[in-house]
Design a binder for these strands. Structure first.
Lengths: 146, 146
DNA sequence: GCAGATGTTTGATGTCATCAAGTACTTGGA
DNA sequence: TCCAAGTACTTGATGACATCAAACATCTGC
């Protein structure tokens, strides 16, 4: 192997590296959320709320049982980070909306993921673009099959 | 933007893509573990056991309280996937070792992460090597800062 | 307009996570 | 030597997360 040729990784090596990166990023996220008194699950929910999302939609996004979402949203609502709004179109549905405080909180959590920010700063523009393009290609299969 | 030039991603876009991939991989892992009646935490512990690891070491690897590990290992041990062995060097320490059945189980779990395997199959050897090299560079900062 | 499907909540139960306290052992000096 | 301080593990209390089953309101299609 020459000094400049990249290491040719086995699939298993690549899988483990991907897992390690994923784990580290999750820890970074959980730690940042913790500084605002949020569990990682609560922060994850907050991160989904660009717009109004029905309870059922949250359960699908989180890949968990709908009854689970009730308690999580209860706790977020009790802290004023989230609001339940009845849907105009379907009276069974309750849409969950982030409050201003909720939006601000999740913005800060993302901002404070220093391990992740620091790591991404290592790459130059071309490398970032390459990484982005490669991950973009993995994404559809990862998300569809799972 | 030309048709062949890769999209130049903002840091936030890259961060979100990385999070999406990480989430999908975790779901894939949890689903595979579930098929063997394991929670994702139990599977994660099993995945750490290449050799003997003291309880305390597991707590460090999982970034959780040591008292938490007691219960997780209790349940794995009750199912015969893991064994506690007293350390010869330090009688306070109990080393956790995967049994043959435990090793076989985690091997199958990894094998059955079809979303991840399927996604990685999309890349050719050169692309895999590029991705590996890029992630390798991110890794130290991600893990050290977190 | 009724039967079946869907959205949400409640209640029971099990796992994961923390902290505080207790026991057993090791270690570094006085 | 022997004791104080530290470390490894467990137990018990408590809260968050996860599932399932069941109840209830509402929607949909026939």
């Amino acid at each position: 192997m020459s000094a400049t040729a990249p290491h040719a990784p086995s699939k298993l090596e690549l899988l483990e590296l991907l897992a390690a990166i994923g784990t580290a990023q999750w820890r970074d996220f959980a730690a940042a959320a913790g500084r605002y008194g949020l569990t990682s699950t609560q922060a994850k929910v907050l991160a989904q709320l660009e717009g109004p999302v029905p309870m059922r939609g949250l359960a699908t996004l989180l890949a968990c049982d709908a009854s689970n979402v009730t308690g999580i949203v209860d706790r977020l609502e009790a802290r004023g980070l989230v609001r339940r709004e009845p849907s105009a179109a379907d009276r069974r549905v309750k849409n969950v909306v982030a409050t201003d405080e909720g939006r601000e909180t999740i913005r800060r959590v993302r901002e404070e993921m220093q391990a992740t920010h620091g790591a991404l700063d290592i790459l130059d523009a071309a490398e970032s673009a390459t990484l982005y393009a490669l991950l973009e290609r993995l994404r559809p299969t990862m998300e569809r099959t799972a």
